[in-house]
Design a protein around this nucleic acid. Structure first.
Length: 296
DNA sequence: AAGGGGAGCAACCGCAAGCGC
DNA sequence: GGCGCTTGCGGTTGCTCCCCT
């Protein structure tokens, strides 16, 4: 048995919406709100599936939608967010006011993906296509712009941490071995940063993943099996006298965790977790995709 | 001028999570 | 806990327009 259709298919109109249908939908939602999408078409006098109505409203008729071409800044933002969030269009759209997930998905598939490919960047990994790269590896070698490196490193570190947590939590469950706080690993350290307001800026929409990490026993306990050289830092152990669950992360620590140090001090970003977003969006002022081309 | 092909975009489809019963 | 309904999401399709030959 297949799935039951979301609505009665027979007698329902499909295809492009007419102005009259749009007007009916807008008028109804303005007066009553959308309520249950399933019952909306009947109440609004539309011969459409509720799903179709919802899609039409969210992607086209909603008053807060900004229509028209994407600005270069928006395109950059989409690329940056895609590097962090992947193909999670709704999450990306949530960071770009007035743009819908469908719009961003179309932009990506029709413009940005091709543009990245044309300059030799894998649109999925956001790394140069010519270089095969385990986590972090190529980032140390490439003369990328600092901000691009931040993004890639941040995401790579997060993915690595999650992968490790997945493995380690299962090991922990198997061994039930207590761990001492001073055996904190960089995975653990990264996760604390990730759980701080810095990471929060990027994952506030990522509820599911957040739950996975935060609820994992391994995210609370330290894990062993990985020795790290974190440079002069990390000494961020929670002292019992400190009521704050997590101290503010030092941006430099993120760099250190990510496994590289800047050759030029001018690259270094000043400590400010408030400007975490800026960290990711501090692209140089060049037009178009030159900031990416610099990676290749 | 006509038609073939590609690009862009709106809409559809199917899956999965959330939620209430 | 199981089940069914609703909603949200991402992938895909198909239509329309435009450009090139």
């Amino acid at each position: 048995m297949g799935r039951a259709p979301c609505c009665e298919k027979t007698g329902l109109k499909r295809g492009p919406w007419t102005q009259e249908e749009d007007q009916l939908l807008v008028d109804y939602i303005k007066n009553h709100g959308h309520g249950s999408w399933r019952s909306l078409p009947k109440l609004a006098g539309l011969l459409r599936c509720g799903k179709s109505c919802r899609l039409r409203w969210t992607n086209y008729l909603r008053p807060d939608i900004k229509r028209g071409p994407f600005s270069p800044e928006e395109e950059k933002l989409v690329i940056q967010l895609h590097a962090i969030l992947g193909n999670r269009w709704a999450a990306i759209a949530a960071q770009i006011p007035g743009r819908t997930d469908n719009e961003i998905k179309n932009l990506w598939n029709t413009h940005l993906r091709k543009r990245l490919l044309s300059i030799g960047i894998d649109p999925q990994t956001h790394e140069p296509t010519s270089i095969s790269s385990p986590l972090m590896g190529p980032l140390k070698r490439l003369p990328a712009s600092p901000s691009t490196r931040h993004m890639a490193q941040w995401e790579s570190a997060r993915l690595e941490a999650e992968a490790r947590l997945s493995l380690e939590s299962s090991l922990l469950l198997a061994q039930s071995t207590p761990l001492t706080p001073n055996k904190r690993t960089n995975t653990d350290y990264f996760l604390r940063i990730w759980h701080s307001e810095v990471g929060n800026s990027f994952r506030n929409i990522d509820i599911k993943r957040k739950k996975l990490i935060c609820s994992s026993p391994a995210s609370q306990a330290s894990v062993s099996g990985m020795t790290v050289e974190m440079g002069p830092k990390p000494e961020p152990e929670q002292s019992s006298s400190n009521p704050e669950p997590e101290s503010k992360p030092n941006i430099k620590d993120i760099h250190l965790y990510a496994g590289y140090t800047h050759s030029s001090s001018s690259d270094e970003v000043e400590d400010s977790s408030d400007t975490a977003l800026q960290l990711f969006f501090d692209f140089p002022g060049q037009n178009d995709m030159s900031f990416l081309e610099a990676q290749v």
